[in-house]
Every structure is written in C-alpha cells, then in structure tokens.
Design a protein around this nucleic acid. Sequence first.
DNA 1: ACGTCGATTGACTGACCAGTCAATCGCCAG
DNA 2: CTGGCGATTGACTGGTCAGTCAATCGACGT
Lengths: 202, 202
Amino acid sequence: MATARSAQNAAEKRRIILDAAVRVFARQGFHTCRVSDIADEAGVAYGLVYHYFRSKDEVLDTLFLERWNVMLDAIREVDGQDILARKKLEAIAGFIVDSYRHDPDLMKVIIVEVTRAANSFGQTHLAKITEAYNLIGAVVEKAQASGEFRTDISPQFAAMAFYGAIEQVLTGWIFDSLPQSAGGFDEAKRLIVETICSGLDR
Amino acid sequence: MATARSAQNAAEKRRIILDAAVRVFARQGFHTCRVSDIADEAGVAYGLVYHYFRSKDEVLDTLFLERWNVMLDAIREVDGQDILARKKLEAIAGFIVDSYRHDPDLMKVIIVEVTRAANSFGQTHLAKITEAYNLIGAVVEKAQASGEFRTDISPQFAAMAFYGAIEQVLTGWIFDSLPQSAGGFDEAKRLIVETICSGLDR
DNA sequence: ACGTCGATTGACTGACCAGTCAATCGCCAG
DNA sequence: CTGGCGATTGACTGGTCAGTCAATCGACGT
C-alpha cells in the first residue's frame, strides 16, 4: 500500500528539512542563510525544500507555530489547575526554560528570529505572540482577584515584566552574556519567579 | 573661511542622513529597506550616503553607538550617586523610558534591529550591550553588600530580569501589544521598579 | 575672473539568491 | 513487466541591491 508508507516518508522528509533548518537558522540566522544551506544541511536537493514548503518564510513560520502553540497549550493547561499563581508562574517559567534546555537551537531561532524580531517575522505572528502575554496576564489578574497578588500593578504590565525577564535570561544564555552553569536551569526558574513575585528588596 | 563652515555643513548633512535613516529603519526595518530609501528620505542623492558612511551597516552602527554610549554614561553617573539602589534603578528605568518618549523611532531601531537582534548586528555590539547588563549588575551587587537587597539572587540575574522587563515593556509599546496611555510613561517607570524591587506578592 | 577641491549626483555593475521547472528516479499496482 | 505518479534533482532565470565611480557642481581663496 503506497499511500501510508509514502505519507510517512513524506512526513519524515519534511521533518528532516525542518530540523536542518533549525540548525542552520540557529548557526547563521534566517536572513543570512540561503535556502541551499538548509538543503545541504538536510542532505537533500535544493528544489525539495520547495516541494515541502511554499517559501523560505514558510519554513520559519512552521517552526515557530509548532513550538509556540505547544507553549500556549501548556500555559492554558497550567492556568486551569487549582494552584497558587506563584506555582503557575513557576510552571510556565519552567516550561520555557525546559524548552531551551531540551532544544536550545530551536528556542534560539524562535526568540531571535521571531519573538524578538517583531519587525520582520513577528509582525506576521504578533497576534500569536500577544496571546501568550494575555494568558500570563490572565493568571496575574485572577491572582489579584483572589488576593494572592497586589492589585496596584496592572496584569498586562506584570505579564510583560515576567515574560521579559525570562526571555532576557534565555537571550543571555544564547549569546553567552550570562553564564550557563551546570545546575543553572533549575536555579534560573527559581530566581525568575522569586524576583518577579517577591522582589529584590530585603 | 571654508573649513569651519563646510565642516559644520558636513556634520549637518551627516546628521540629516542619520535622522532620515532612523525614520526609514523604524518604518521598514533595516533588512527590508534599501539605501536609496534612506537617501530619498533625506532628500540627497544615493551616492552621498556613501560619502558619509562606509556602508549601510555603518549607518546603523553609528545610530546604535551614539545612543548606547549616552545610556552607559547615564547609568554610570547614576551609580556614582549616593542614593538607594531602588532610586538608582528608578533613574535607569526612567532614562530608558524617557529615551523612548523623546524619540520612539530611534529606540525602536536600537531595540528591534540591534539589541534584540543579537544574531546579526548585536553580535558586533555584544560587548557594548553586555556592558549595560554589567553596570546594572554592579548596582545590584552593591545594594546586596549594603544590605538593601537580598543576597540569594545573583546580581547578573537581577540585572537581566530588570533590563528584560524594561525592554519588554518598550517592545510592547513599539508593537502595540501594550497600550500606551497618556500618563503611561511615568506609571511605567514606577511599575517596573516596583515589580522588580518589591514583587507581585501581596 | 579663475582654479581648486570637497560635496554631490545618479547611472551602472557585479554578486547574490529566492523561486521555477523540465528532466529523472524509483516505488507500487495491475 | 510496465505504466503511472509522486518524490527528487539541480541548472537556470529574473529581480534586487549594495557599493562604485566618473562627471558635475559650487563655495571660497587668490
């Protein structure tokens, strides 16, 4: 039966190209790399990239949306749980940090080429990106309503501060402005949440 | 006397091109715009851009370094004062927010095209960017030594969280993910410092 | 007047690269 | 075996632009 096996092969090839693209984008950057670099890295012919994707852009779009949707689902799932907001923020920060630990190249691409590049690609995905801020904002808002968080900081601001802190730490790791010590990942989760929830004051 | 007047004219022309570049970069992004767009916006001939700058890159480099050095000096100046660290952070956040208020286009270019694009341009300026983190880290470190800040959060982390929060808020304004209300700028300074120093907990 | 020299012009070139497409491959059904 | 069809190939095209350069301008000193 041709259909099933070839469908599987097709999906595998597509994945091979996507994975190669992650490595190439992470190494050279989206703008600086050529489509032929992706093809070479994947070990396929130039034209095959265009068999599986409409354009170079679509490759990056796919990578971003795949991962970002997983993250949005994770945040929604966490928010549905009946736990303290601080625990929710810990889980969210943990998810993002673990994403980086598990596949630093992919996270580098998403952050550097999409999230932090709202001018070019981010523009297309601005709504999706903003969705994350809104979900985090909702966590904060509920915590304010329940009395867990103070109410004189707008949830949207709090969300930006929280997400910004995480992204800055990842960016620091990505570009070696911040040392990645051995047990640094778990330490990082704690420090981020601790800073945002309890503050630096003694 | 030719020298003085022409030197002034030259400096003015250079400035006209730089200012035009800010508008063009902010509107279209560095990668997407052409050098001819800058020349058109400045009302000069294409070739003149290359009389004043070695390359398109050098135009962006100049814009970034001009502003970033001012900021580094401002941070150093603030840190030299004998005030609470919280006041120092307020002054630093205030300086950055005011920079945005005063020239949103320039800040957009610096953040979007350099600071948050460490892959392409940021790589060149990584050392300069990191210098800011280190200066902020030093503020925190001293505050820990004096007992003003808790000592279980590394100064480097705190600096990243603080700077990340600010940059994320500016990015939110830049791309309209975050509403810029009328008195929002001063409110923003307060909220950022309040969040990082005192935390969200009630 | 006139010569000099930096400022200014914009047409042109060379390189680069995304995307196309006609040709070939190879798997499977009949 | 064979025909069909999707997968795969990679040479080629068209368009885009950064950067060059020879020509012109014009301010100023003599």
